[in-house]
Every structure is written in C-alpha cells, then in structure tokens.
Design a protein around this nucleic acid. Structure first.
Lengths: 232, 232
DNA sequence: AACAAACTGTCAAATGGTTTACATTTGATG
DNA sequence: CATCAAATGTAAACCATTTGACAGTTTGTT
C-alpha cells in the first residue's frame, strides 16, 4: 500500500468536516500514520491513550473479550471511518479493543490535540454530536433487534448494517461483498458457526446471498431488506 | 405533584452543566412543562419534533414497536435524566418512542432554541459529547452481553444498568428498588415472562434480589455484580 | 505438487428457552 | 370489604439452537 496522503484522508473524514480548510495543515502536522497486518491489535481495552483513529485503507473491528477468552466483534469499520472510543472522554481507559480486520493503514490524531482543535473551531461540534448520536441509534437498533426479531431477520439486519458502515445504501441493488467468515459473524451475533450456517444457507437458497470462502456477498441489499421486513 | 422549579431542574441536568449561571434564565424562558400519567405517550417514533426533554420527576421508558405490535423497552430513564433522540440531528424524525413509565413531569426545550444556546456557550459541547459517548458505550455493552454472556448474567447486568441510570453506583451496598414488572423486564431482554422468572427466582434464592409485586429490589448492587462476574 | 492450516458443510444428541395452560397472589376500585 | 384486573408462580410439552464430532473444501506455503 502506497503512502497515504494524510491531509486527503483527514479531509474525507466526516468527523472533521466542520474544520475550515486552513485547519487541515494543523491536523496533518499532528497526525501519525501506522500500518497493521490482518489481526494485528491497534489498541487494547483498558489502555490509557485516547487518540482519534481514521482509517486510510483496510478495515478495523472493534472487539470485546470475556474472561473465558471468547471474543465478540461489535462493529467493523471501513476505510474513511473513524473510531477511538474515548476521544471525547479524556482520562477514561479504552472501553473496547480495536484490531485490524484486513490489512489496514490508520492515521492517528492525539486526543488532546484533536480536542483543542475542536475548541478552536466550534462549528465542528454540532457535526460531531450528530455523528455520535447516529452511532448511538445504530447500537440501539441492534439491541432492538435482539429483543424483537427472529434469528434470520437479525442476521439479515446485521449484514445490512455492516454494508451500511461501508457506505452502501440499503436501497442499493448492487452486490456488496463482506469480508468475514461464518465464525466471525457468529461471534458478532452471539451464535455458533453452525447456527449461522443454516440461516445464511437458507438466505442463499432464496438468492439473497452468495456465500464464498471467508466472504458473504449481499446480492441485492434492497431485496434482502424487503425479505427481512416480510418476516417481522 | 407540585409545580416543579424549572430552573432548578435544568441546573441539575448534566447535559446543561456547561452553561454559565446567566444562561439559565434563557433556558427557563423557553422551557415548557408537561405532565403525564403512567403509560401516557410523550412522543412517538417517526414524529418530526426534536425537543430536549428533562425529567423533573417520575420515570420514562424509550421504546420500539415492531410490526406485530410487540413492544421492546430499550432504556428506562429516571428523574434528572434527559432524552429526546434527535436533539442533535435536526430534521430527523424521532427514532424511538418515549412513554411515561411511572407518572412523570417533563420539562421540554425546543430543539432549535437549545442548539442555538449551545452555540452561544461552546463550553457546553465537550460535556455533551462526553455524555453521548458514554451512552454509546452503555448501548454497546448490552450488545456485548447478548453476544458473550449467559442469560442469568445478562439479566443481572441489565438490572445493574437500570440501577446505574438512576444514579446508583454498582459498587453500592444499599438496596435499590426498580419499579418494573417481570413482563417489562422480559420485553427488554427479548425473553418471556416465565424465562425471566426462573432466573430472577434463582437470584432471589441467593439473596441477591428481593422480588415484589411490580418491583425488583437489588439487595446489594455490589454483591450482584460480584456474582455476575463469577459466572462470566 | 504436496502439504498444512483455516474455513466450511452436515448430522445426531443434548440443552435451554418458549409455549401453553392454569392456579395464586396482590393492589386498586367502588 | 368485596370484587376484579393485573401481576405472579409453576409445570409439562414442544421446539430451536447449541454441542460435539467429523469429513470435505479452499487457500496459501514450502
């Protein structure tokens, strides 16, 4: 992967959209670029740093591990997304871990510098609040699914959610390929590999998914969405 | 319930903690007080208003309903808390519904006025970002539970979460009474009344809970937390 | 080309939670 | 205080999902 243009990456990050043009020189000056291989840890739960991370390329998963060592993937972020749970809560240890999902390049901003920058350009605040609010709704909609929907619908909605994070509209008719194994999806859903298997197999038989090795393709997000709503 | 002192309610709301003393006259001037009986709707999913609501007294539940009419409670907020999902995203329809859980008095601020006020006092922004971030983590920790933990642990953690919203520290040893029926708890967890019953009965037998009619008392949050961790 | 490692497909048995049904208790109302 | 609706306790049959076990497939590596 070529050296990323740090300033271009930062300009495309929605969280920084409120910064004026002139601010991006400052942003670039304090940024640091890091490269990760697949499954390399980016930071661990409990670590005390609080940087803002922007994904220049690749994908990153946010994870949580229980005492028994079982790992749950909470979200997978794609290039252009930002993460770093404690950026807005200085002094807090990281609540979740972050791991490179595929090979990834991350541009990192020190938390303190980023917060000072926001304070210098208060126009950026309402944008950040809007974005964090929307993430809160996404999370709540998953909780809602767990409480309200059957297993097949939940798997379908989670797949659509993952596609959405990659910038795909659920109304799209274009196929979307998700790079994840049945097991990773199972871990995200709190299910077993076999349990997920039988459901996605059924979705494949309906022509809604195409299953590959380490990959799940949504043939048509819109059709999947329509099918799921018919289940409700 | 007596007429609430609007200004006092607003001063105690953490979301407004960044406003200077002088701002609270403006806040009080734009506020509107509303009273609700138990189970009265405060606003419905999809409605286009975007006010900020602060609970002067009583409790409020945030809900979601599926096509089949089954309702899931996502959160229950207590006096002093604030809610109103789209305050920070003007133009969006309400994502979730809000209903008075017990009889409640709500102080409501017009979204537009509130946002302008924040812009006038930018010191308030970092506080709001911190608070919304923390709510995001709470939501994610529930997703984590669903994926990682067994049913008993999940019920216990949810009870602790509800206590926390009421301002109770999980390290507390004082009993906390939660006003909710087995059925409401079941709806929150995506379980049946009977399923919840057998688990909380077991927790009662261990002396961790005291069960009453329409009420669940955590005898000692700290002890409950310790027991749950032992399950993991 | 051969091999190992990771991922996938599939099945029977065991488990755990839901469903269904009914008896009992509690709190509110007249 | 009598009555009723709502909330709770309990148990059996049922069903969906997990467990555990193993064979087949793909990918990448030597």
């Amino acid at each position: 992967m070529a050296v990323p243009d740090v300033e271009a990456v930062m300009r495309s990050c929605p969280l920084l959209a409120g910064f004026p043009d002139t601010a991006f020189r400052e942003v670039a000056a304090m940024a640091r670029t890091r490269r990760f291989g697949a499954d390399d840890p980016i930071y661990d739960r409990g670590s005390m740093q609080s940087t803002l991370c922007v994904i220049a390329s690749g994908t990153v998963r946010i994870t949580s591990v229980n005492a028994a060592g079982r790992e749950a993937t909470l979200i997978i972020f794609d290039a252009g997304s930002w993460f770093g749970d404690t950026v807005f809560s200085p002094g807090m240890p990281r609540v979740y871990g972050a791991t490179a999902h595929e090979e990834a390049v991350i541009v990192e901003l020190p938390g303190e510098g980023f917060r000072q920058l926001m304070a210098s350009y208060p126009e950026s605040y309402p944008i950040a609040l809007d974005l964090v609010s929307r993430r809160l709704w996404s999370a709540m909609s998953i909780i809602e699914d767990d409480a309200l929907r059957g297993v097949t619908a939940r798997i379908g909605r989670r797949l659509l959610f993952l596609a959405e994070i990659q910038g795909v509209r659920t109304s799209s008719v274009e196929p979307v390929a998700l790079k994840l194994t049945r097991e990773q999806l199972a871990n995200m859903m709190g299910m077993t590999r076999q349990g997920v298997h039988s459901r996605i197999k059924a979705l494949e038989n309906r022509g809604l998914l195409a299953l590959g090795y380490g990959q799940i393709t949504l043939c048509s997000p819109r059709a999947l969405q329509a099918y799921i709503q018919s289940l409700d």
